[in-house]
């Protein structure tokens, strides 16, 4: 192969000789290669003028004034904005519709509610998951630092038990206006024994159902405390809670804070949002200060509803049985 090409043919060498007889010819590189090299060098200058390259330049990082196509035009942030505009364009038909729709109407629209569920996921992660847990599974604190903190930080949103009601509009209201839990501490109203008794009764109601618990002789004392003290004022005579005031349903399997004997006792003794050692249960108001836009809150309402626990609007109040027990 080499015999056919680059024969010495009078071409001088560089004059440097290795290993007795090896030397470099001073042959020119191929013409196409040299042209490419020159073109690249020219292009570097053009490129340098067209795109941001001089950090010290005033009013942008361009060398302006040559009128080259694109010079002084391109910035990374502008490119990002353009990409986002494309995305916004895709979303626009949906977003426009959402503006004038109620959450219930969005929920009824299959396509729209699928769209909302997707953007709702991001909103939920950013604003809600901190307390309610990713995907609304709840965050159970172990009470490592303070015993009163043992229990769920915020209600689980996947189940069908709601303190204030699980209808789409109620969920929407909760997000817009926030909620404040309340329960009187009983450490000064009831004796230690009475608190223990009523704790057992409440636990029995959840585990066996109210009717069986009522018939259970071993928790009779607690039943009496429940009926005679102020419990029924908020939780109702049937112990099913009142969504209007956000009191918990004590007869179902769901516990707002902690369903263990110690946990229930803790709640009864120190109450909720009531000073020392009390449970803390505050849902912030997301309208205030423009934390979320109206459309975003609608999206969240639909998203939360679709976790699977949402209560259909038409359901009779008695059956809707909200309230997350204790």
């Amino acid at each position: 192969m080499s015999d056919n090409h680059n024969s010495a043919g009078g071409v001088p060498t560089t004059g440097h000789i290795w290993d007795d007889d090896l030397a470099d010819f001073t042959n020119q590189p191929p013409k196409w290669w040299m042209l490419g090299l020159t073109a690249s060098a020219i292009w570097v200058v053009v490129y340098w003028l067209m795109y941001p390259a001089i950090p010290l330049a005033i009013n942008g990082t361009y060398f302006k004034g040559f009128g080259l196509p694109g010079s002084g035009q391109w910035t990374a942030i502008k490119e990002l904005a353009e990409d986002q505009a494309v995305l916004d364009e895709v979303r626009k038909p949906y977003e426009d519709k959402l503006k004038d729709m109620t959450p219930a109407a969005i929920l009824a629209d299959t396509n729209l509610s699928e769209y909302v569920a997707r953007s709702g996921k991001v909103l939920f992660s950013d604003n809600c998951a901190g307390c309610h847990g990713q995907n609304g599974v709840g965050t159970f604190q172990t009470g490592k630092f303070a015993e009163r903190e043992k229990g769920y930080m915020a209600p689980i949103l996947n189940d069908d038990d709601w303190l204030f009601g699980g209808e789409i509009n109620t969920i929407h209201e909760t997000i817009m206006g926030g909620r404040q839990g309340m329960m009187t501490p009983h450490k000064d109203m009831l004796s230690e024994k009475q608190i223990d008794d009523v704790t057992l009764y409440v636990k029995a109601m959840s585990e066996q159902g109210k009717d069986k618990a009522d018939a259970d002789a071993s928790v009779a004392a607690g039943k009496q405390v429940f009926a005679e003290s102020d419990c029924t004022a908020c939780h109702g005579a049937d112990a099913k809670g009142m969504p209007a005031m956000g009191s918990a349903n004590l007869t179902d399997k769901i516990w707002r804070f902690d369903g263990s004997i110690e946990g229930i006792k803790q709640t009864i003794t120190y109450g909720v949002n009531a000073g020392d050692n009390a449970r803390v249960a505050v849902m912030p108001n997301f309208t205030e200060g423009g934390k979320l836009s109206a459309v975003e809150m609608k999206k969240l309402a639909v998203y939360v509803y679709k976790f699977g626990g949402g209560t259909p609007e038409a359901a009779p109040a008695a059956e809707a049985a909200p309230a997350a027990a204790n």
Binding site: N135, N158, D159, D160, N249, D252, K253, F307, G308, G309
Partner: peptide, 16 residues
């Protein structure tokens, strides 16, 4: 996958 199951108020288990 998150959550794998949900306990409902009547004690039943729900999957999504």
């Amino acid at each position: 996958r998150q959550p794998l199951y949900v306990r409902m108020s009547d004690g039943s288990i729900q999957n999504k």
